[in-house]
Design a protein around this nucleic acid. Structure first.
Lengths: 151, 151
DNA sequence: TGAAATTAGTTACATTTGTAACTATACTGG
DNA sequence: CCAGTATAGTTACAAATGTAACTAATTTCA
């Protein structure tokens, strides 16, 4: 409580606000590294990233891995197909289910972006100490489990 | 390095990705609290929040406080004016410069949302310990100074 | 002064995104 | 077996957003 009995909110100290500002800046800073040279949106990059790790996922599984909603996955996949970074077949057992794999070009892009991502993350170690980085990851993991439950 | 000499990226362990997922979920969870009952977008809420703290700012100053780009501020202000939550005059010394103040209705909304925000933030204390919360804030502040410099 | 550059804010257009409705395939229980 | 329901993915439409061009007011400095 404070003046006139109203509670006070300092936006700049409000955690959801801080998270949002920092995250947006980090996302766009990283996106700059791949968006122009590789012509990828953030959603496209995520789909590429997860299929670079695990090949043959369906669009739905990609959605689970990337925490994207299915319509975003659908659109990102459509563009990656168009750019020939992705190859799609459909499961024989279930014809609804897609089977997504990177093409040679897709893998080539993936392999060139991964080092950018790792270097970018490494730069955060110049900002935060290793201990702080661990703490941050720990907090994010806890928050993640919490917010997942909110769904 | 690993198989085939290519570096490996685990998306789920990639900090920018974790930040993005957690932040988006937290933002939308909080937005649910005010978007329907008060019919405010996240940008509108931010403008309201900063003008609730400091009255009489110009659109540009609101942009600095909220870290929004000026076109977003312009649009949020336009809507808040339309909804009569905001009152605008222009500075006598510099006729370009707006002077933004909440209306009585705007203040009323503000005062009802602030407790929601504080309660929401309080809930994070059920997830993170007080120490973790401090660590998170500390990390975010450091990252914030860093990413600001990137601009 | 007064022409050029800067600043505050808006508008226009293209792109992205979210919600919901839709198609097609597969499953389920009587 | 087949009507009803669930699932995978796409499409359609409205709303949000980013970029750049714009207007109007102010500053700069030759």
């Amino acid at each position: 409580m404070s003046n006139k009995n109203h509670q006070v909110l300092k936006l700049r100290e409000f955690i959801p606000y801080q998270l949002s500002v920092v995250t947006n800046r980090i996302s766009t800073a990283f996106a700059r590294l791949y968006s122009t040279p590789f012509n990828l949106s953030i959603h496209e990059w995520r789909v590429l990233a997860v299929l670079g790790e695990k090949s043959g996922l369906s669009a739905e599984q990609v959605g689970v891995e990337t925490e994207m909603v299915k319509v975003s996955v659908s659109r990102a996949v459509a563009r990656l197909l168009q750019k020939k970074l992705l190859h799609r077949t459909f499961s024989a057992e279930d014809k609804r289910r897609s089977v997504l794999r990177l093409t040679a070009r897709g893998r080539a892009s993936y392999r060139r972006i991964v080092p950018l991502a790792l270097r970018f993350e490494k730069e955060l170690e110049c900002v935060l100490t290793r201990a702080e980085l661990k703490q941050l990851e720990h907090c994010l993991a806890k928050l993640h489990r919490y917010v997942r439950a909110l769904d």
